[in-house]
Amino acid sequence: MRSLWVAGIVLCVAARARADEARPAASSTMGRHLLMGVRAFKDGRYEEALVELRIVARAPDAPADLAFYLGPTLYKLGRHREALATFVTSRAAPDALTDFYLGEACYQLKLYRKARAVFAGLRTRGLGPVLDEAAARYVGMIDAAYQAEPGNSTIDYYADQGLELAGGDPVVAAEYLDEARQVEALARTRYRHAEIVAALGKAWNATGHAHAVVELLAGEPSPTAEASWQLARAYAALGDRAHARPLLEAIVNARAANAAEAAALLANLRP
C-alpha cells in the first residue's frame, strides 16, 4: 500500500512538472534551471535537482512556489529539517501535495501533533483516494500513540530540541517549540508551560511571525518577563502602540533583563 501512495506523490509532482514545463519563463536562465530541476526530480536524481533549484532560489525572480519543488527534493534526500524549514517559510499558496510532504517531514522529525494537523487538514480539504488513505493511516497511528497522556519526558524532548536549535535555526526551533506547546496542552498538569510559550514567542518573533506571537501570548494568564518582552516586541512590530507601550514601560520600569532593548523600542514607537 505504501508503494501506491508514494507512486501517487511522484505522479502528482510529475503532473505539476509537466505543467511547469509549459511555462513561458523557460526562456530565462532561472526558468531553464527550474525545468532542469524538476526533470531531475522526476528522474529521481534528487541531488542534481537540488543543485538546480538552489540556483533558482538565488535568482531575484525566483518563483514564489519554489518550495513545491525544493521541499520535496530535500525530503527525498532525507534532509527533513531543511525540508520543513523550506515548507514553513514558503510564500506560496497552500497546495495539497506540498502540504502532504510537509506532513511527512513533520512525521519523520517526530513532530506528530503538527503532522496530524497537516494530514487531518488535508483530508478535510479533500485528497485523492491514494493520498487520503495514507493520510488517514498517519492520523490513526498518531492518535493511537497519543491515547495515553503524554509524559513530561516527551515534553522535555520537544522543548529541549527547540531550545537547542533556537540559536542557529529559529524556524525549525519554532516548530519543535510549537510541538512542545501542543503536547504540553494534552498533559493533565502544566509542565514547563511558561518556558515553552516564552521561547516559542521568541522564535516566532525571530522569524517575523508577530501575529502568531500576539495570539500565543496575549491570553497568557501570568506571563513570564520573557513572555511579556516577546509580546511587547510583537505588538511593536505590528505597529500596535496602544498595547506595546504599557508593556514596554513596565519592562523598563522593572529594570528587567530586556530593559535597555525595551527602552530603545519605546523610543522608536511613534507617539
Partner: peptide, 28 residues
C-alpha cells in the same frame, strides 16, 4: 555565465560541508 552559476552553487555547498552537492555543482 552558466558555469559561474553552478560554481557559485558548488562553493556555497562546499562551505556548508555539503560535499556531494558541491561535487555535482562543480561538475556541471
Amino acid at each position: 555565465a552558466e558555469s559561474a552559476a553552478y560554481a557559485q552553487a558548488g562553493d556555497e555547498a562546499r562551505r556548508a560541508g555539503d560535499v556531494r552537492i558541491a561535487a555535482i555543482a562543480y561538475r556541471k
